[in-house]
Write a protein that binds this DNA or RNA. Structure first.
Lengths: 346, 346
DNA sequence: CTGAAAGCGCTTACAG
DNA sequence: CTGAAAGCGCTTACAG
């Protein structure tokens, strides 16, 4: 295995092919293919000669060629919003584990919450002929995918449903979770509760708002328009929204934060204020129990969502043909302290 | 665009090819190729006919075939330890951004810190003929990659160097950062400082231990063997190690945590103890400033590491041929409170 | 047990 | 401006 030995058999930048292996071993192309793929019907002696040629030449099968011929690429695409968002980490890993267990590679990309970037990325994955797609959608119109789905690319949406097409979706119980969170605050004596959520064009934001409204209505509580603020989750925007609600003549005594990024900023804002304010966040996060007070949350189960979505995708690839289904993953309220703070005296 | 209209032109599961488009448009294959790839030399009228056929048939170029012919796949592989580890999120995103800016897709996989799984994954990516690889290595022997690198697959290691081969690497200043952390504790009066780190076979763990020793030596302080504990970062192991050091007859008065997972467990353990213990952690994390006391850390810059590594990879792909280099990214000590706690009175 | 021929869907190199 | 032929590196279908 000296450099010279390698140098004689291969130029930099070119790779040996099965044809080269066949020539060196003195056999036909098909015999090499059999050995490389572990197919039966090769005598031990022939196999050994082929293996020797493979090692000597440093041959590695070119899967691009194999894929072209076989039709299936043994790869799936995962499109999410942001590879760096901790919420998607466990989901990403779960999808990868399922892919791996099916012998498939995972092509990953993020949409940055931009519908046109989502479409560009998804269509690039389709051009690569991934076998299937797991999509956390940014767009609200997925009709551009119809020809691809018709052509056989399996597609499962996660976290948010597809827009304007009928497709499999794996969602959290956003409505029920939000309702539970707000009911929890009401049970602890709050009547003026603020909701700071994500942009209203995002399905989860709308569902969580619906849950907030349902809980308030169930308790016979009115909602002042100034208690609801949907928009960007950028810290400045969230900070401004929280401050407005807390500095009003009749301030809210509790906040319901619509997702993990809102919660983190809310924790910072509340930490700077003299009077304690109750807080329940949607989404759990790693150090929620270490902050004082510890943060009460409605936890989703992103790993469960990822496993479910990828599992469904591979069942579709195995040919299951029943109509698209919507699966809902339950959420769980975890009381840790911040959600049990009583309303401040007026 | 009714179902019937689509149904007549395409069966489920088969896709139109350039040949189909050519036939329908009444032109040659090469003309379709020109239109699809935006090459010049097609009259507007011909182009229109081809575009119509493309739309009518729902044609999308099969990049598998293109890749086979062109040689380059316009994709790179990223192998990391765990897709769900928040430390790798920003690195992952940075690599994706660079890939995207070069028109390449990102194939992602995790090694689970298992050398044989790393090798299996890397070689699968090589079989796919990714143009290049960014690897956070789990293995300590990468000679298995030599034939692939010789054959032209560019490879850059991040966070940890390659083992037994000469390859590009982008690393944090682990030694200097650890030295700074421990010197900081010494400057605040500590003489008995514990170090809880990752498994000693991991390069970063060894380098950080070296920094710890250097800082102690520079201050003329002895190190008791019982103050150093390298091993798994599982919470149970870290908890046991910390408890042993803190319950010793001459307990440590400060802890230096060797990475983000160790730090998080250390925070939990210290929060349960009566007397305050100083803590500095290697790696920053999102809520480090919200815990009380806020956590002093040596921050790495994983986004910078990812950008640097991917940038170098694409320069290699552009043909830069200088010898492999090792780039070191500086760390930064961020004092927030936990590292400035004085030693407890004996 | 073994291998020659055809073909996957494109691009390349070339000719008109 | 346009297109027929060859070929990328495999697998498939078939024959011996």
């Amino acid at each position: 295995m000296t450099d010279t030995a390698r140098g004689t058999s291969r130029r930099y930048g070119t790779r040996p092919t099965m044809k080269d292996v066949a020539a060196r071993a003195g056999v036909g192309l098909k015999t090499v293919s059999r050995v490389v793929n572990g197919e039966p019907g090769v005598t031990p002696d022939t196999e050994r000669r082929v293996q020797e040629a493979i090692t000597a030449l440093g041959f590695r099968r070119n899967d691009s060629a194999r894929i072209l011929r076989k039709g299936r690429t043994a790869s799936i695409g995962l499109v999410l919003e942001d590879l760096a968002d901790p919420f998607y980490g466990p989901l990403n890993r779960a999808v990868e584990e399922v892919a791996r267990s099916h012998g498939a590679l995972l092509i990953n990309g993020s949409s940055a919450e931009d519908p046109s970037r989502e479409q560009e990325l998804v269509l690039a994955l389709c051009a690569r002929r991934v076998d299937g797609l797991v999509i956390i959608p940014a767009a609200d119109d997925h009709r551009y995918l119809e020809p691809e789905i018709t052509a056989g690319i399996a597609t499962v949406f996660v976290d948010r449903p597809a827009g304007r097409i009928d497709a499999d979706a794996v969602l959290s119980d956003n409505f029920g979770g939000a309702r539970d969170a707000v009911a929890h605050l009401i049970a602890h004596g709050h009547r003026r509760i603020g909701f700071i959520g994500d942009q209203p064009r995002i399905h989860t934001a709308r569902e969580r708002l619906r849950g907030y409204r349902a809980a308030m209505a169930a308790a016979g509580l009115p909602i002042d328009d100034s208690w609801v603020s949907l928009g960007s989750t950028a810290p400045d925007r969230v900070r401004a929204a929280a401050t407005t609600m807390l500095d009003a003549p009749e301030p809210v005594t509790a906040l319901f934060a619509g997702n993990n990024r809102v919660t983190v900023t809310a924790v910072r804002v509340l930490g700077e204020r003299p009077r304690p304010v109750a807080l329940v966040g949607f989404d759990d996060f790693e150090l929620a129990d270490l902050v004082r007070p510890a943060i009460t949350v409605v936890a989703q189960d992103p790993a469960h969502m990822g496993r479910t979505a990828a599992g469904l995708l591979f069942r579709r690839l195995d040919g299951i043909e029943d109509p698209p289904r919507r699966t809902e993953i339950p959420t769980r309220l975890i009381a840790r302290g911040s959600g049990e703070i009583p309303p401040a005296e007026d």
